[in-house]
Every structure is written in structure tokens, then in C-alpha cells.
Design a protein around this nucleic acid. Structure first.
Length: 275
DNA sequence: AATAGGCCCAACCGCGACGGT
DNA sequence: AACCGTCGCGGTTGGGCCTAT
């Protein structure tokens, strides 16, 4: 798989963008759009590589970008979504209108991660003492750090997480229609098209639909795990609805669904009977 | 007042995915 | 099937700003 060099470095400007460059880029895109980033800088009269232009546009110049500090609700949403999506910043950004993946990544690394880690530390020892009933608890920081691609375990963010309604919109499941095309990130805040597989997207959506949509108390409520019953009505986590989703999406791969279902349940310390 | 260290954020880099040829 | 071009993503970096000493 050949890959074109990012750009001809020679003669191309790097570093911070000037007001003039911003104006050139904005004017060009407003007039012509951006069908081809690679060709754009030349056409727009910019001494930048296309990649740099795309980044500047998507992360800074886009008109729909919301500037300013993150609200507590947005921060809580990021924490929630990160528990489900891991470091899939674009996926998180797609559910936070006006925010970019870069911005979210930055705020996670500089503020939220620390906050989550801090909260998890004292709670962890507390949980060992209490043991019951089952609560959403933290695992070791090591696990948290080394499994970023998997749904994160639920940290004890109850204080923040149980806060008022979050502002993301629950979307129709991407596979609930007959469409097989990717409908991830139908939220209009990004021009990015996904490179994730359909299975990944569907999985994310199912996880989000069932983990986040449930209700806000989910994140702070005590969860019971009735191991001996087949009625998996565990708090608000409706496994039956997960299964329904699964039925609706018979084309999806079994492996990822159950694998993720169990890993998520495991992270939430729920007991599931063998299937 | 000086400065060291931390924080924040825009920008860059390298990689994989994907479509076209 | 192999190659090429383009794009988007996540990780990382660099520098300005802020704060504590």
C-alpha cells in the first residue's frame, strides 16, 4: 500500500497560521469547498501542504466550531463517552456538536484523565473494603492505561457523572435501516468521514444506545447482578434490549458483539450466565 | 523580579483505511 | 492483485502562558 508523502516540505510554510493565511483558506473553501485537500493550497494561494490546511480548517476555522471553555456537562459527556469508546476521539467529537477531536483529546489529557484517575484512587480501596453491593468501580490505573482501545471500565465519577442531562443526542441506530453505508457521526459538527469499519460503528452505537441512553442515574446507581436469574434486568442496563439490537443486526459479526458485551459487563462488574 | 515547572492547545507526524486505476 | 493517491485518525510535540517558589 503506497503512501504519498505528506507534502513537499521544501518551500512550504509550517507552524502557526497567520491571519492572512486563515483568510485565504476560509475564502477559498467558502467559494469552492474542499473536494481535494492536496490541491487546495496551491489553488488557494497558500504555501502550506494540504494536510496542514485540512487540519487548520477542521480544528479551527470551521464556522460551526464552538469556541470557549467546555461546560461541565460537556466534560461529563466526554468522560462517559470515553468509558465506552476509549480513545476514539473522533467518535466522541461526533457526539459533541461544535467540538473537535483535537480539542477533546487535549482536554482529556490535560484535565479529565487526571480527574478520573484522581477519583478512582481512593474509591478503589474503599470498594475493596465494602465489596457489596456491586457498584460501578474502578480498576487499577494500569488497566485503565493499557486498554485504551477497549471500552473503559467505569470509573467512579458519580459526582460529575450523575449531574444533569448531558447534551448529546442519541441517534438512530446506524443499522436500523436497510442502509449498509456508514452513518456514523451523522451529527453535523464534523466533515470527517469515518474510516472505522461498519462493525465498529455499529458496536459503538449499540453500546452508546444501551449504556448511555438508559438514563443518567445509570452512572451513579448501585447495580445488582442477579446471577441466578435469567432476567438480565440489571438496573437500567437492559440486556434484552441489547439482544434486540443484536437481532436487528444479524449481519453483524457475533464475535465483536458478545465480546464487547461481556467485556463491558465485566467492567461494570455484572455477572452474566453462560450462553 | 527571576525562573523553573506545569498547563494548555495548535500543529505536526506517521499510520491505516479506502477508493480508483 | 498490486499499486497509488488521498483522507482521517490518534499520538506526540513545541511553544506560549500561568503559577508557585
Amino acid at each position: 500500500m503506497g503512501r504519498a508523502p505528506c507534502c513537499e516540505k521544501l518551500g512550504l510554510k509550517r507552524g502557526p497560521w497567520s491571519k492572512e493565511e486563515d483568510d485565504l483558506l476560509i475564502n477559498y473553501i467558502n467559494k469552492h469547498g474542499h473536494p481535494n485537500w492536496r490541491a487546495l493550497p496551491k489553488l488557494a494561494g497558500l504555501l502550506r501542504c494540504g494536510k496542514s490546511c485540512r487540519l487548520r480548517w477542521t480544528n479551527y476555522l470551521r464556522p460551526d466550531i464552538k469556541r470557549g471553555n467546555f461546560t461541565p456537562e460537556e466534560e461529563n459527556t466526554i468522560i462517559k463517552l470515553h468509558q465506552v469508546l476509549g480513545n476514539r476521539w473522533s467518535g466522541i467529537a461526533a457526539r459533541l456538536p461544535g467540538r473537535t477531536d483535537n480539542e477533546i483529546k487535549n482536554i482529556w489529557h490535560t484535565r479529565l484523565k487526571k480527574r478520573v484517575d484522581d477519583k478512582s484512587q481512593p474509591q478503589e480501596t474503599q470498594d475493596i473494603q465494602d465489596q457489596q453491593p456491586m457498584e460501578i468501580t474502578s480498576k487499577s490505573e494500569e488497566n485503565f492505561e493499557t486498554h485504551s482501545s477497549e471500552p473503559e471500565n467505569s470509573k467512579d465519577n458519580s459526582e460529575e457523572i450523575s449531574s444533569p442531562k448531558t447534551n448529546f443526542q442519541i441517534q438512530e441506530h446506524p443499522n436500523s435501516s436497510s442502509s449498509t453505508s456508514s452513518s456514523r457521526d451523522s451529527c453535523s459538527n464534523t466533515t470527517a468521514t469515518s474510516t472505522s469499519s461498519l462493525a465498529d460503528e455499529s458496536r459503538d452505537q449499540i453500546m452508546l444506545d444501551n449504556l448511555i441512553e438508559v438514563d443518567d442515574n445509570f452512572w451513579s446507581e448501585v447495580l445488582w447482578a442477579p446471577a441466578e436469574t435469567n432476567d438480565y434486568n440489571v438496573s437500567d442496563l437492559s440486556l434484552s434490549s441489547l439482544e434486540e439490537n443484536y437481532e436487528l443486526n444479524s449481519s453483524l459479526n457475533d464475535y465483536w458483539f458478545w465480546d464487547d458485551l461481556f467485556s463491558t459487563a465485566n467492567e461494570l462488574m455484572l455477572e452474566l450466565p453462560e450462553l
